[in-house]
Design a protein around this nucleic acid. Structure first.
Length: 210
DNA sequence: TTATAGATTGCCT
DNA sequence: GGCAATCTATAAT
């Protein structure tokens, strides 16, 4: 069902604009569900549909990197909206966020899972998987660490990148898809401020983590 | 200068 | 279901 739904073209006019991200991260996270996150390198498209995302707020949110104020590491969060914030976690993985809110105000959305739609081979290769077994498609880009690995996202390569320009090789586009039902749950893996319902998932989608 | 916790994953029992 | 691996930012000595 996924393989015969592959994407071959990405019209530039469907790239989400800076205004889209210039809002409360909770609204942005909700609206990012169903959009496409795609890496385009020498003509090839690699990516899929966003099915899970988490909102991180500013100083009021103890779980957010911005909670302690601006540092060298989290500076992107305080910059203009629509830029990639990539950080290294647990000595092994990168996590991809997009900055929200106007310049000077922190806030972001963490991408947690994709439904793979294009470049499955490249993703499998990037994930060091020998093949793409139908039963294990979830292993390609479900989970924030797997997602970044599948798209080759690193801090050096992508941190601070503007995701709203046609020149960017990493973009988020609207192909018209609208999720039927969205669920809100607690965020995963955090210890501070765990009770807030800031994780957004497409209800019933098989590529949501857990 | 040293210690520790962390927005995870994969392998172990 | 439990836990080690591994790097970095930040807190503690």
């Amino acid at each position: 069902m996924f393989l015969n739904n592959q994407i071959t073209k990405l019209p530039n006019n469907q790239i989400l604009t800076r205004e889209f991200y210039d809002r409360d991260p909770r609204r942005v996270a909700r609206d990012l569900l169903g959009k496409l996150l795609v890496r385009r390198t020498h003509g090839a498209l690699v990516g899929g549909r966003i099915v899970e995302a988490e909102a991180y707020l500013g100083e009021s949110d103890a779980a957010a990197h911005a909670a302690a104020g601006q540092t060298l590491r989290n500076a992107v969060l305080f910059g203009p909206p629509g830029h990639a914030y990539v950080y290294f976690i647990y000595g092994n993985y990168f996590c991809l966020n997009v900055s929200c809110m106007p310049e000077g105000k922190a806030g972001c959305v963490l991408f947690r899972a994709l439904e793979p739609l294009c470049g499955l081979e490249q993703m499998a290769q990037a994930r060091a998987l020998a093949a793409v077994p139908q039963k294990k498609l979830r292993l390609l880009a479900t989970g924030p660490g797997r997602l970044t690995q599948a798209l080759g996202i690193t801090r050096e390569r992508d941190n601070g990148k503007d995701l709203t320009t046609t020149a960017s090789d990493l973009v988020i586009v609207d192909d018209g898809f609208r999720p039927k039902h969205v669920l809100r749950t607690a965020r995963i893996g955090i210890t501070k401020n765990p009770e807030q319902m800031l994780r957004y998932v497409i209800d019933g989608n098989a590529f949501v983590s857990r």
